[in-house]
Amino acid sequence: MQSDVIVQAEDPNSRDAKELIELLSDTLQSITGDSGKNSFDISDVTVPRSLFVLARNQQGEPIGCGAIRPIDSNIAELKRMYAKSKANGVGSAILSYLEEQSMNFGYSQIWLETRAVNQKAVSFYENKGYSRIDNYGKYINREECICLGKFLS
Rank of each mutant, 00 (worst) to 15 (best):
M1A: 15
Q2F: 08
D4T: 12
I6C: 07
I6D: 04
I6Y: 02
V7T: 06
Q8E: 14
A9T: 07
R15P: 10
D16R: 03
D16G: 04
L20H: 05
I21W: 04
L24D: 00
S25R: 14
T27H: 14
L28Q: 15
T32R: 07
D34N: 13
S35Q: 07
K37I: 12
S39L: 13
S39A: 13
I42G: 03
S43Y: 06
D44F: 07
P48S: 13
S50L: 10
S50F: 09
L54F: 03
R56C: 07
R56V: 07
Q59T: 11
E61N: 13
E61S: 13
P62K: 06
I63H: 00
C65V: 06
P70F: 03
D72P: 02
D72R: 05
I75N: 14
E77M: 05
L78E: 00
L78F: 08
A87G: 09
N88F: 05
S92M: 10
A93C: 10
A93R: 01
A93K: 04
I94G: 02
Y97V: 10
E99F: 05
E100P: 00
S102C: 10
N104E: 12
F105E: 02
G106H: 03
A121W: 00
S123P: 00
S123V: 14
F124P: 01
F124T: 08
F124M: 08
Y125K: 05
Y125M: 10
E126F: 00
Y130G: 01
D134L: 11
G137A: 07
K138A: 14
R142K: 15
I146E: 02
G149H: 06
F151S: 14
